[in-house]
Simulated assay, not measured.
Amino acid sequence: MKIINLQDRSELLPAIALAHVQAFGTLLPDWTLAQAEAELRAQQRDGIPCTWLAEDDSGWLGSVSLLHDDHEQIRGWSPWLASLYVDQAARGKGVGATLVAHCVAQAAALGVPVLYLYCETPMVAWYRSLGWRVHAELQLGPLAITVMAVDTGCR
Rank of each mutant, 00 (worst) to 15 (best):
P113N: 02
H135E: 12
M148R: 09
L143Y: 15
M123V: 00
P122D: 03
A82C: 10
D151N: 09
L99H: 11
G96T: 10
Y127H: 03
Y116M: 03
A125M: 04
G94Y: 11
A125F: 05
A97N: 03
C119P: 05
V104Y: 03
W126S: 01
L130A: 04
L84C: 05
L81K: 04
V112D: 04
P122E: 02
L99P: 14
Y116T: 00
V114Q: 12
V134T: 02
G141W: 15
A101Q: 13
D87S: 15
T121K: 12
M148T: 05
Q88G: 11
V86D: 09
A82G: 10
C103M: 10
H135N: 14
L117E: 03
L143E: 12
S78D: 07
A149V: 05
Y85P: 05
H102D: 13
L130E: 03
G92M: 14
A108N: 06
E120I: 08
T98L: 15
I145L: 07
P113C: 12
Y118C: 03
G92Y: 15
L110M: 12
K93T: 11
S78Q: 14
V95H: 09
T98P: 13
V112G: 01
A149F: 00
V150E: 08
L138G: 00
K93Q: 15
A101W: 06
T146D: 00
A89Y: 15
A144C: 13
A149W: 04
M123N: 07
T121R: 05
Q88V: 13
D87P: 10
V86S: 11
E120H: 06
W126N: 00
V100M: 07
W132S: 01
L130P: 02
A107V: 04
A125R: 03
T98Y: 14
Y118M: 00
G92I: 12
